[in-house]
């Protein structure tokens, strides 16, 4: 018996070896090595590397542009995650109805999510153009001021990125919620309707609590994505106007590949990693206690 167990284990590690090797090379080693680099003054243009301890971390936390980027990323996350979640849930409720042709609508809602990030960004540059862009054209029909340059106006640039992320991320969130809604046994609603609970009450007492695992998954994955936002900023705003859309993903990219400050950029990416971990933990706690609040 023990022999077959050993044999099984040996076979299992054999099957796992390639992906474990890959995991070690492209995930574990880079994270460890990144921490090592972050402790050095390490600049590609400067052969003189030296150990500086946590100096890069201290410098980062005092650097106004980095703090601004950190703030922008948190702002983007705080806006895009809850709003994206709500939009996803609403869309799921909408397309969960047994309407004719609903599968076509589901597919259309999903298309932006499978699109190329660069092509999507170029599309959204058009959507946000002053006067001639899609949004401003509609505003023009309604006789509202249609000269707003959404991506270059300091008041709207960040909100524009948030709105874009809600629309382009709608599909996957909708599908997740849809499968969550489908998994709720209809008997629960029937029992509730006998007690006189319908509409909003049954949504609050049954649908939302039953969807908590889905919500947790959507919140955590969306947060991780939102904190690392890069392509739309690279393509559409380059961090402007006035640094209003300079998010961490873009800030670290410019530090690493334009300023060649390898050590400093590594320290910043570790600060980002810590921030993501912290936020995810808080989210777990919050959603859990929210679940208990519903008595589920």
């Amino acid at each position: 018996m023990a022999q077959t167990q050993i044999k099984q284990a040996r076979a299992a590690w054999g099957f796992l070896s390639l992906s474990l090797l890959h995991l070690a090379a492209f995930a574990i080693y880079p994270i460890l090595f990144s921490f090592f680099i972050s402790l050095y003054h390490w600049n590609i243009l400067d052969d003189h590397r030296r150990f500086v301890g946590f100096a890069n971390y201290l410098f980062s936390l005092k650097e106004p542009t980095f703090l601004n980027a950190l703030w922008n990323s948190c702002l983007f996350t705080a806006l895009s995650v809850p709003l994206g979640l709500a939009a996803g849930l609403l869309a799921a409720i909408l397309v969960a109805q047994p309407l004719r042709g609903i599968t076509v609508f589901r597919a259309i809602f999903y298309i932006p999510a499978i699109s190329s990030g660069v092509a999507t960004s170029i599309m959204w540059i058009y959507i946000y153009l002053p006067t001639n862009g899609l949004i401003n054209t509609v505003l023009g029909w309604l006789h509202i001021n249609n000269a707003t340059d959404f991506l270059h106006d300091a008041r709207f640039a960040m909100l524009s990125l948030v709105f874009m992320s809600i629309v382009t991320g709608l599909g996957p969130r909708m599908v997740l919620y849809l499968s969550g809604i489908m998994a709720i046994p209809p008997s629960l609603y029937e029992a509730a309707s006998i007690d006189g609970a319908t509409g909003w009450t049954s949504f609050k007492k049954i649908t939302l609590p039953m969807l908590t695992p889905t919500t947790l998954f959507v919140v955590v994955t969306s947060t991780i994505g939102a904190m690392q936002l890069f392509t739309p900023v690279y393509m559409m705003t380059q961090g402007g106007p006035e640094g209003k859309t300079d998010v961490i993903g873009y800030h670290i990219y410019t530090d690493a590949w334009q300023n060649f400050a390898t050590g400093l950029a590594s320290a910043k990416s570790f600060i980002l990693l810590a921030a993501i971990l912290l936020i995810s933990l808080v989210q777990f706690k919050m959603v859990k206690s929210g679940l208990e609040g519903y008595g589920a």
Binding site: H152, A154, G240, P241
Partner: peptide, 10 residues
């Protein structure tokens, strides 16, 4: 460029 944008646009 960011400075001129701030002046011209914002």
């Amino acid at each position: 460029q960011s400075a001129l944008e701030a002046v011209l646009t914002n």
